[in-house]
C-alpha cells in the first residue's frame, strides 16, 4: 500500500518537474523562435545561447512582491493561478511518453485529460473576476465562451477517433497506430477518409483551447492590455505563464497520441520516447511559428469559425465515419 503511494508521489513529482522544466524552456524557445522569425537573436546574453534566461526570469518573478489589488476577491485571486497550473500537471500523469514511461495508465485517459483541461477555463474566469478589473472581466468572459465553443468540435473529433479505435486508453490508442506512418490516424483510410480534416480541426481547437495566438483573445494585448492576468505580478503571473506552456505541451502530446502515432517511428523503426518528444516539439514549434505569423482574430470571428465551420464539419465527419464503419 505504502509503495503505491510512494509510486504516486514520485510520479507526481516527476510530472511537476517535467511540466515546470518544459514551461520554463518553452518560454526560452518561444522567445528565441520569435526572434529568429523577426530576424533578431532573442535572449542570448545569459549563458550560452541565453539558456540561463529562464532560471533568471523565474528568480525575478519569485522575488517580486505579490500585489493584490484593493477590492479584489482575495480567495479567488489567489486560487486562480494555482488552478491554471494544477490541472495541467495532473494531465501529465496519464500521458504515455513511451510504452513503459507513463505515470499512471488509465483506461479512460482521454476522458481524464479533457476533464482536467476544462478546468483551465475556470482559472481564467476566476482570475478575471477575482482581480476586479474591467479588462480582466471582459477577457474572462471572452475566454470562457471561447473555451466552451472550442471544446465541442474537439470532443466530437475525439469521439470519431474513439469510435474508430474502440478504446479510450491512450496507450492502446498509440498501440493501434504502431508500425509506421501508414497506420497513423492522420492518414486517411477506407473507413476514415476525412482524417486529415479532423486533424486540422483538432489542431485549430488545440490552439484555441490553449489560448494561443491567433486565438489569444483572453490576453489580447492590444485591446485588453493583458486580459485576465492584467493585475497579476510576481509568481501569480509566473504560474499563469507556466500553466499556459504546460497546456501547450499537453495539447501537443494529445495530438501526437491521437493522430501522429505516439512514440512510433514514421517508418516503424526503433519506437521510443525520443520519437514522442520529437513529435511534440515539432508541434510546439509550429505553434510558435503560427503565433508569430498571424494577427489575432476577433471574438465573433472566433465564434463564427467554431460554430459555422468547425462544428458542422466535425459533426459531418462523425456521422460519415460512423456510416463507413458500419459499411466496412
Amino acid at each position: 500500500m505504502s509503495l503505491t503511494i510512494l509510486n504516486a508521489v514520485i510520479a507526481v513529482v516527476i510530472a511537476i518537474a517535467f511540466a515546470a522544466l518544459n514551461a520554463a524552456y518553452l518560454v526560452w524557445a518561444e522567445r528565441r523562435g520569435a526572434g529568429r522569425i523577426q530576424r533578431r537573436p532573442g535572449p542570448n546574453v545569459n549563458g550560452p545561447l541565453g539558456l540561463l534566461q529562464p532560471p533568471a526570469d523565474g528568480l525575478k518573478l519569485m522575488t517580486k512582491q505579490l500585489i493584490i489589488p484593493g477590492g479584489a476577491d482575495k480567495a479567488l485571486f489567489m486560487v486562480a493561478p494555482v488552478l491554471a497550473m494544477a490541472p495541467a500537471i495532473m494531465s501529465f500523469v496519464t500521458i504515455p511518453f513511451s510504452e513503459n514511461i507513463v505515470a499512471r495508465s488509465m483506461n479512460i485517459g482521454v476522458l481524464m485529460i479533457f476533464a482536467f483541461a476544462s478546468l483551465g477555463a475556470m482559472s481564467i474566469l476566476l482570475a478575471g473576476w477575482g482581480s476586479r478589473n474591467k479588462y480582466g472581466v471582459m477577457a474572462a468572459v471572452r475566454a470562457v465562451s471561447q473555451n466552451i465553443s472550442y471544446e465541442i468540435p474537439m470532443l466530437i473529433t475525439v469521439i470519431t477517433i474513439v469510435m474508430m479505435t474502440g478504446t479510450m486508453d491512450l496507450k492502446e490508442l498509440v498501440a493501434g497506430q504502431s508500425g509506421g506512418i501508414w497506420n497513423w490516424n492522420l492518414v486517411p483510410s477506407l473507413s476514415s477518409p476525412l482524417m486529415p480534416v479532423a486533424f486540422l480541426i483538432f489542431f485549430i481547437c488545440t490552439l484555441a483551447e490553449t489560448n494561443r495566438a491567433p486565438f489569444d483573445l483572453g490576453e489580447a494585448e492590444s485591446e485588453l492590455v493583458a486580459g485576465f492576468h492584467t493585475e497579476y505580478g510576481s509568481m501569480g503571473f509566473g504560474l499563469f505563464f507556466m500553466g499556459e506552456y504546460a497546456n501547450i505541451v499537453i495539447g501537443a502530446s494529445l495530438i501526437t497520441i491521437l493522430f501522429l502515432g505516439g512514440w512510433g517511428c514514421p517508418l516503424g523503426l526503433f519506437p521510443g520516447v525520443w520519437w514522442f518528444l520529437l513529435k511534440i516539439y515539432l508541434l510546439i514549434f509550429s505553434f510558435i511559428w503560427i503565433r508569430w505569423t498571424f494577427p489575432r482574430t476577433t471574438i465573433y470571428g472566433l465564434l463564427n469559425l467554431s460554430w459555422k465551420i468547425l462544428i458542422p464539419i466535425s459533426l459531418f465527419n462523425l456521422l460519415f465515419t460512423a456510416g463507413l464503419l458500419k459499411v466496412f
Binding site: A34, I37, Q38, R39, R40, A213, P214, D216, A220, E221, S222, W292, T293, F294, P295, R296
Partner: peptide, 16 residues
C-alpha cells in the same frame, strides 16, 4: 497597425 491587430512580426520587418 498590424500589431494593433495582434500580429507582431510585420512590425519588425517594417522597422528593418
Amino acid at each position: 497597425f498590424v500589431m494593433d491587430l495582434g500580429g507582431f512580426t510585420p512590425l519588425m520587418y517594417a522597422i528593418e
